[in-house]
Design a protein around this nucleic acid. Structure first.
Lengths: 230, 230
DNA sequence: GAGGCGAGGATTGGATCCAAGATTTAGGAT
DNA sequence: ATCCTAAATCTTGGATCCAATCCTCGCCTC
């Protein structure tokens, strides 16, 4: 006796189930990355829980995860605070990015597919338009899309996730010290170079170019910050 | 009126406070890394909590952290299971290690200190003895000491921690497929080479040598595993 | 006899409650 | 007046309890 009221009975486990911890984590992460929660800001569990419409319990777990991701700093009986990166820590993140993005680009190039190349070309084109329109937020997103399209082709899940997290930490600063136009033209030129190297299948060259690209990003950010300590 | 009963009143914050979540996390991590908890094993929260002498609440948070570290896999309403790495995932981890250890070695060499060099030499010597005595566990630990003494000198906290976690994931397999003697002599020779390059200050060479060293480790592990899927 | 359906038990996610530690504020002594 | 002390308040960590989901086992139907 098939019951038509239930459309399909065979996909409850594969269906993505979002627990309250997930919801809280994602929302908090977004707030931090987009500046709604500033560096050094204290994270009061009770208030945050209320703001997120969850109990304190899932919120605490969310804080734990964000601490593990390096976005906040938590000490035992003290309020967690949004992690602000010192210049040294920023260099730290960028060196890790240099390393990871270098091999992801190399292996991504080695294992590239048509769809991956198409995605890169498309991101590059749109990025040119975004630059012309001076749309900063979109520019940052497209920059990310361009690189990560290639990195995805490497097929290294864990490496990819590590790189994503590193990227998160630094993009926050890029967005903050907004006027990214500094070096944007250079960045585009480097993207074109990377795309060409990828089309040519020059894995060694693409690694080297990617590392240079990342380090130049650090240099740009350094100049933007210059003066403050964090 | 100084009270002699309290030795010093001015160091409560710096004193390391270990929360139950920390205790549970460390113990569980150790169990997983040393094989007391095997791949695919289901982690029953109630039983584990009892075994660790903590409540289910801190245990759940510990599981969350280990999931974030990639040691276990957690799905919403299902028991967490100890993460087993497939061959592909093992390559993933090693590629990330190659990237990270490469730059840590490079920058560590650039910023090396006397104490760091001394530590490396000492680890190398003890490693030779451990190999002679066929003491596997000590050998793995000393291998780690040798490399990480150098990495510490780089002064990149975050990169260091990422690399530590990657190392955890792969060391578990090294210990499991015990007879590490395969390639141990090669490994020692490479360590000597790395030490020499470091003394010479050849940053480029040390990076290249370290990357080769890591990849050879992967190759060794592949041979040991060859046959099974995980 | 095999496959599907359903009920019961088991296990996890979430909420409230209590305890332990920390921060703040008021008070007193120098 | 300032600094130190101490008590009160606030915030976080941990435990127990309840609800929601999943898993297993037995039963029924074909």
């Amino acid at each position: 006796m098939p019951d038509p009221s239930q459309e399909r009975t065979d996909l409850p486990p594969p269906a993505e189930y979002r627990t309250k911890v997930d919801i809280a984590t994602d929302q908090l992460r977004s707030w931090i990355l987009h500046g709604q929660l500033q560096h050094g800001e204290r994270l009061d569990q009770t208030k945050l829980a209320a703001a997120l419409n969850v109990s304190r319990m899932p919120l605490r777990q969310a804080l734990l995860r964000l601490a593990e991701e390096g976005l906040i700093q938590a000490s035992p009986h003290r309020s967690a605070v949004v992690m602000g990166l010192t210049r040294a820590e920023l260099e730290d993140v960028y060196q890790a990015r240099r390393a990871m993005e270098g091999i992801l680009a190399e292996l991504g190039c080695e294992r590239r597919t048509d769809t991956c190349m198409k995605a890169m070309e498309r991101a590059l084109q749109e990025q040119e338009r975004a630059l012309a329109r001076n749309n900063l937020k979109r520019w940052v997103d497209l920059d990310r899309d361009f690189h990560f399209s290639l990195y995805r082709a490497a097929g290294l899940q864990r490496s990819y996730e590590i790189t994503e997290q590193l990227r998160m930490s630094s993009d926050r600063y890029i967005r903050h010290y907004a006027s990214y136009r500094t070096g944007a033209a250079d960045s585009l030129a480097e993207h074109r170079e990377i795309l060409q190297l990828c089309q040519a299948g020059d894995t060694g060259g693409i690694r080297e170019a990617t590392e240079r690209h990342v380090l130049r990003g650090l240099e740009t950010l350094r100049q933007l910050i210059s003066g403050g300590d964090e």
